[in-house]
Amino acid sequence: MSQGYRAVGWNPQKKTYDRVLGLGLLLYLGLFVGVGFALHPTATAETLLLRGLGTSAFLLLHGILCIGPLARLDRRFLPLLYNRRHLGVSMFLLALVHSVFALIQFHALGDQNPLVSLFVGNTRFDSLAHFPFQPLGAAALAILFLMAATSHDFWLANLSAPVWKALHMLVYLAYALLVMHVGLGILQAETSPLWAGLVLAGLALVLGLHLVAGWRERGLDRELAPGDAGLVDVCAIDEIPEGRARVATISGERVAVFREGLTVTAVSSLCQHQNGPLGEGRILDGLITCPWHGYQYDPCSGRSPAPFTERVPTFRVVLRSGRVLVDPTPSPAGTEQVPACAEQPQ
């Protein structure tokens, strides 16, 4: 959590994650170039490396984009999300090396600055088939750079979670640009149906998973209206699993209503770190624990335990006839609430 900043907050699980990632990438590139030379002895190393780096980055981006919806469909995928930033930075580095190789190979040692040549080398903006594909890749790389450069928690804290999140949603624009970069670039030369088929399959997978995950959550954002006394009836107390939450949309915001034993509390469902889904977390050692990165908050006050300083808005909760009623007006982040207590069953 965010008491201070370190370049990388290493821990055993992150190390394992990164080791597997590094070995996987080496294996992929080694296979691509090695088998490439075995099957195409007249190929040049530059071209094989260029393609190996480009395809590995593109495949990694597919994995990154699929982790989010997969984790929403099955929480067992959440550990993959925990260190997704390292996947993102690795993908950016692969794309960067691919881009530098391409810039040198196609634009350097000529009569124009390579960076200028990148944008003026092909001016067929009037034709889809001949549309310049390299500037599309450059635009995507600029977005990926922005994301990689701001991936650290320092930027998350200083930009605020909503701004940071919005910035990082640009990954979808980068993906769209890269699909066009590939479709209008290498697919114009590599005419095997396998290449085009894989790009389409990847697109279908990413879109499909997002649609299914969105479909599954379609009811979640249905706004609950206040009833008598201006309170919102969320559910019966026994509908909330022990140590878990029921999420409801109240006043346009997702609210996580937690139950621990006989007490019920409510906080904003947006974790202050990356806006993770607190409502999908659970209470561990008396603290609400975010499922994404383990950030913790006191259920009554919405405050992280000292020395940490994160705070989330809290909501007043009332129990009436076994129903959980929530005041729709959020209290300022970190405001202590008196938990609602159910009566001990006789």
């Binding site: 296979l31 691509f32 590995s56 994995g63 590599e190 095997s192 290449w195 894989l198």
Partner: peptide, 28 residues
């Protein structure tokens, strides 16, 4: 579960790499 998932993803990527490499053309 994570081990199985990671291996499946890696295997899928390697199969894709082999397919891409095998179907490449244009090397005179």
């Amino acid at each position: 579960f994570l081990k199985r998932t990671g291996l499946a993803y890696l295997a899928a990527c390697l199969v894709v790499a082999l397919g891409l490499v095998a179907s490449m053309g244009g090397f005179s």
